[in-house]
Design a protein around this nucleic acid. Structure first.
Lengths: 129, 129, 129, 129
DNA sequence: GTGGTCTAGACCACA
DNA sequence: GTGGTCTAGACCACT
């Protein structure tokens, strides 16, 4: 699994890392029960601060995407992933709204927007891209 | 046009305001040539600082959604809006990616994701909601 | 003589008007002794405020490009134009500096910069363009 | 690198600072990858407000002359500088026009104008002036 | 310690 | 009265 961090981005590094790991899960590259690098190793590999990895792991744990075992390491949640409950759907729509709004304002049709959305879905759907 | 600012949100106020105005344009509530409030009036109405509104106007101007006439005020760009060029589409996909990825990770199918996207589209499509 | 005002520009209208008249002189479209429109007529033609035209005329008079006769109107200075004295040259170089500096920073050579400068000269040199 | 701000000038301080930094790049005094002072340190050194420096940095970032690393500071773009594309050349000619026009109106010849332009070029070309 | 954001209050040029 | 600019001072997220 290849993780790309953009140090110039305005998106916090811990968020980027969070997203990359979720992306790995979505692609099927990270399977339930699979081990993740330790905080120390991961931070060295990526050239970032240990605290940053720690923060990402904390968030992923909170959202039930991973399990953190003291001294035994971190693994992708072997019991499966959290469902798309109403709380998540509400958050999803909220985040989608400004993107869709600007797309409409720039003249895109419903079909065009859906098409872009599908493109992203398919890109993520292909395992091991 | 009704604008709602969430002072507790982690999203900067100037970004929220930007998004709300784009939403107004998408909904057809803000038409080309229509005047926007002056920075002072708007900031008082919203209970925020003048400079915050100014920053939003600066961004909207930069993206060609509004025109700023130095001594006459601000108006929705009467010459129409910027197109959804490749630069925008690339940015759109980049922003869509983490949302779609998490949706997939939480077990949503292609259809379910598209459906949520369409819901948002239709909510915005209804003028004067 | 055709005068173009850009109301969206960040350059003050009175400065734009000043520049346009100087351009007319440079092109030879406005000759010494030639009459300029009255403040009232000019402001109506251009769709701008009388005070604005007045300010431009004041500056042009101050720089000896025009003569203002009470009740007789305004004319291009029949006694010729002010020379390019050291004061002017100093101001010219000062204004040129940031333009040349950015050109260099963007990788332009001496020849390329001179070429652009010459292009502008020739565009202005052609009378009645 | 020595930077001079004229507090009496009608040119905004943030623009003066922008120009001075570009001049530093043009002269080769500021090299790609070189660090710039933090907004706080710089503003204290220059005797101006933090936000004014911030605005300058924002513009330089927008034009790709610098890179801003959120928690590490600001550096001259290590990947090189933006090219003199057609957009820039058009802007350059537009800015050159009134300067050349007034020079012509004051009786300067093509050669004299080119000569002043070259003087400015050579002044900037001399590294470490 | 860094940049990002926000507020409050002021003066100015412009029209 | 409008936006543009500048100052002073504050809190926050990130590393």
């Amino acid at each position: 699994m290849f993780i790309k961090i953009d140090f110039q981005s305005e998106i916090p590094i811990y968020t980027q890392l969070y997203n990359e790991i979720i992306k790995g899960i979505a692609k099927g590259e990270l399977l339930p029960g699979e081990a993740l690098p330790s905080v120390r190793v991961f931070s060295q590999d990526l050239g970032i601060n240990m605290h940053t990895v720690n923060k990402t792991y904390g968030l992923l744990k909170q959202d039930n995407f991973i399990q953190v075992h003291r001294q035994k390491g971190v693994e992708i949640n072997p019991d499966g992933f959290p469902p798309a409950d109403e709380v998540f759907l509400e958050k999803l729509r909220e985040n989608l709204e400004p993107l869709v709004a600007e797309s409409i304002a720039r003249g895109m049709s419903h079909e065009e927007i859906i098409k872009e959305c599908s493109k992203v879905f398919e890109k993520l759907g292909r395992k091991g891209e």
